[in-house]
Amino acid sequence: MPRRRKSARPLIAALIAAAVLAQCAPAQAENVIRLPAPAYDPAIKAPRATAVLAGGCFWGVEGVFSNVKGVISVEAGYHGGSKADATYQRTSSGATGHAEAVRITYDPRVISYGSLLRILFSVVADPTLKNRQGPDQGPQYRAAIVPLDSAQHEVAAAYLAQIGKGGLYAKPIAAKIERFTGFYPAEAYHQDFMQRHPTHAYIVRWDAPKLAAFKRFYPAWIRGAPAP
């Protein structure tokens, strides 16, 4: 009897599955660097403070900061632009002036404002990129510090100058300090996205490595359970 040829379908299916798994496998976070502590970072004795920071897609920014000890809550939203245009559909055009951002409520007796900036630029956002982070491009994905008072502005300016002069980057710092004009909470389905969808392909590829890098660089700042 003639020998039957083995079907190529199982092999093709296996190769496709392997390719998919490779794309979704945890990757090393790109452009992570364990930055030095801020040289200027005055202590604040108040039990609560608020920070507004932008660092690309807010899923990962929120996902990392919700795991930081001393952070009370993190809310994804839109900084800049107008309230009328503060929707995901409109800001995605890149023409509204908004940036995807987070509003962090924290205990400055536990984690300082300067330390939040250190985490932001160590593992969340590359401060040398202009109007983009990771796979996302456009001004809505810019990295920015949005001080809410003069004290925060002084810390932000000092830290950007510090890391810019420290010989840590081959390119100049592109992240800016921007004036606070309003923060508008994002739609409900964006909130706690990383915590609720840990196996989402984007989270696995781009954001989980950021959280892993944070835990590797700053183990003393890991909180027991993610902040709401």
Rank of each mutant, 00 (worst) to 15 (best):
I173W: 12
H98E: 01
T128I: 13
K130V: 00
T96N: 13
D192Y: 12
W206Q: 08
I119K: 00
Y159S: 00
D207P: 05
Q191G: 04
F214I: 14
P226H: 05
E178P: 08
F217R: 08
Q140Y: 12
G94T: 02
H190S: 03
V146K: 01
F214L: 06
A99I: 02
T128L: 08
L117T: 04
L148R: 14
R118S: 08
A174C: 12
D126Q: 09
T105R: 07
A175K: 04
A188L: 05
P209I: 05
A156T: 08
P228R: 13
V124C: 03
A161E: 10
T199H: 14
P226R: 08
L211H: 04
S92W: 08
G94N: 05
L211A: 03
A151P: 00
K210N: 04
D207C: 04
L120F: 09
Y184D: 03
Q195L: 12
Y141R: 03
R179C: 10
I119V: 15
R216P: 14
P198D: 14
T91W: 03
L117D: 04
V155R: 12
E100M: 07
D149S: 09
W206V: 15
Q140I: 00
G182C: 09
H153D: 09
G182N: 05
A95T: 14
V110S: 10
L116F: 10
A156F: 02
L116T: 09
Q137T: 08
L168C: 12
R216T: 15
F183S: 01
V124S: 01
F180S: 06
A212C: 00
Q137P: 06
G166S: 10
V146L: 12
K215T: 15
G114D: 01
T199R: 15
D149K: 14
H153Y: 14
Y189E: 04
M194R: 11
I177D: 02
I163M: 05
S122F: 07
K171T: 01
G114A: 07
E187F: 09
L148V: 15
Y106L: 05
A225M: 07
I222D: 12
T91I: 15
T199E: 14
D149G: 09
Q162Y: 03
S112C: 07
G94R: 02
R205Q: 11
D136R: 02
I203R: 00
A143H: 03
G167S: 12
K171F: 10
P147E: 03
F121S: 04
A156N: 10
A213F: 01
T91F: 01
V123I: 04
